[in-house]
Each structure stands twice: as C-alpha cells, then as structure tokens.
C-alpha cells in the first residue's frame, strides 16, 4: 500500500499495518511525537488499534527549537 508520510509517498509490502507497526518500522519508538491521519489526530492510545489504508496521508510531528 502507498502511504504519504510528511508529504513523501512511501510504499509498504504489508497488507495490514497499524500506526504502531509504522512507528516501529520508521524507528520512532520512544520518540515524543504526534500523528495526524488524513487530518485527524490519532491518539497515542489508539496506535495499536488504528489500521492504515492505501492512500492514507500522515503527518508525524515533534517539538523543535523555536521562539
């Protein structure tokens, strides 16, 4: 399936992929981040339960220095 992450398309072999799987795949486990799927926030508590679908658009954000 094809998923757009932070504006870049990426293809995944797996037919079933949860947000938690994706976080692990992207080596982001333990990082403080927030995820938006198709414009809706996915709460951390729902990472396991939320299955991704072909064509999903994800934003994965963190805190950086700023004024």
């Amino acid at each position: 399936m094809l998923i757009t992450i932070n504006g870049k398309p990426r293809s995944f072999e797996a037919a079933n992929l949860s947000v938690a799987d994706l976080v692990q795949h992207l080596e982001l486990v333990g990082k403080r981040l927030a995820i938006e799927r198709n414009g809706e926030i996915v709460p951390r508590s729902q990472f396991e339960a939320t299955q991704l679908a072909d064509g999903d658009k994800l934003e994965i954000v963190g805190a950086v220095g700023g004024g």
């Binding site: 080596e27 994965i60 954000v61 805190a63 220095g65």
Partner: peptide
C-alpha cells in the same frame, strides 16, 4: 517556547532532540 515541525523520517534516528 517550542515549535512543532515534521519529524525527520529515516535519518538520524539516534540523534538527540531538544527534549
């Protein structure tokens, strides 16, 4: 104050963060 920005994917996985 902190800013909210897209996380770098697939690069510098072990790099320290502001937090």
């Amino acid at each position: 104050t902190v800013a909210i920005r897209r996380t770098n994917i697939g690069q510098n996985a072990g790099e320290p963060s502001l937090l």
